[in-house]
Every structure is written in C-alpha cells, then in structure tokens.
Simulated assay, not measured.
Amino acid sequence: MTTSFLSSRDFNRDPARAKRAAKNGPVFVTERSKPSLVVLSIEDYEKLAGQNRSLADVLTAPEDLDFEFDAARAMPGFKAADLD
C-alpha cells in the first residue's frame, strides 16, 4: 500500500489521477502543504468503517475471516473489567 499526496490545485485539475492513485492506497489532498482530505478506494473505506454485518453474518462466515470487535463502540457505556 502506498500513500500519495496531491495539492488541492492538482486534485481540481485532474481528479482521475487521485482515483487511479487511490487503488494503491490513500491519497492525501493538501492545502498549503497541510492535509485537508483523503481519497480512499471503497475497499479501504469499508475496512475502516466496518461493513455493518449482523451477528449471524459473522458467525456463519468462513473460518479465515479476521476482524476486531470493539465492545465500547458496539455498546455505548460499556466498561471493560480491570483484571490487573
């Protein structure tokens, strides 16, 4: 995965360039040398955002499925037990 950078001027002139680059990783669009937005492929976005799967979908998925469960995000107010 490679990270690319485009100035906002270059992004406005040639948005297809950002779309092509996003196939290989995130594309940071900068304004005055500071990142202002990121262009991602839909696959990368879905990895970050999650895919809103039901519990049944997860439990019936192939065994090689790898995911992380964040209880605090899934259940507001959840507090993990301190076992130390």
Rank of each mutant, 00 (worst) to 15 (best):
M1V: 12
S4L: 06
S4T: 11
F5W: 14
F5P: 01
S8T: 00
S8M: 09
R9F: 14
D10F: 04
D10W: 02
D10T: 11
F11A: 02
F11H: 04
F11R: 02
F11I: 03
F11N: 02
F11T: 01
N12F: 12
N12Q: 15
N12R: 15
N12W: 11
R13D: 08
R13M: 01
D14P: 00
P15L: 14
P15S: 14
A16W: 05
A16P: 00
A16Y: 07
A16I: 12
A18R: 01
A18D: 04
A18I: 02
K19D: 12
K19N: 03
K19W: 05
K19A: 13
R20A: 11
A21I: 05
A21W: 08
A22T: 06
K23L: 13
K23R: 11
N24C: 03
N24F: 13
G25Y: 07
V27S: 02
V27K: 04
F28K: 07
F28I: 03
F28M: 09
F28E: 03
F28L: 13
F28N: 04
V29F: 03
T30M: 15
T30Y: 10
R32L: 13
R32Y: 14
R32N: 15
K34H: 12
K34G: 05
P35E: 09
P35F: 08
S36A: 12
L37E: 04
V38N: 01
V38F: 00
V38R: 03
V38W: 01
V38Q: 01
V39L: 10
V39P: 01
V39A: 07
V39Q: 02
S41R: 04
S41T: 13
I42N: 12
I42M: 10
D44P: 01
D44L: 02
D44R: 06
Y45I: 03
E46L: 15
E46G: 06
K47H: 14
L48H: 07
L48A: 09
A49W: 10
A49I: 10
A49G: 07
G50C: 12
G50F: 08
G50W: 10
G50L: 09
G50H: 12
Q51P: 03
Q51Y: 09
Q51L: 10
N52D: 10
N52P: 01
N52C: 08
N52H: 11
N52F: 07
N52R: 13
N52Y: 06
R53C: 04
R53V: 01
R53F: 09
R53T: 02
S54A: 05
L55V: 07
A56M: 13
A56W: 08
A56D: 14
D57T: 09
V58I: 15
V58N: 00
L59H: 05
L59E: 06
A61P: 02
L65G: 02
F67G: 00
F67A: 09
F69K: 06
D70R: 13
D70E: 14
A71F: 00
A71T: 06
A72C: 08
A72V: 13
A72D: 12
R73D: 07
R73Q: 09
A74E: 11
A74Q: 13
M75C: 00
M75T: 04
P76S: 05
G77Q: 10
F78Q: 10
F78A: 15
K79L: 10
A80N: 06
A81C: 04
A81R: 11
L83N: 01
D84K: 13
D84W: 07
D84Y: 08
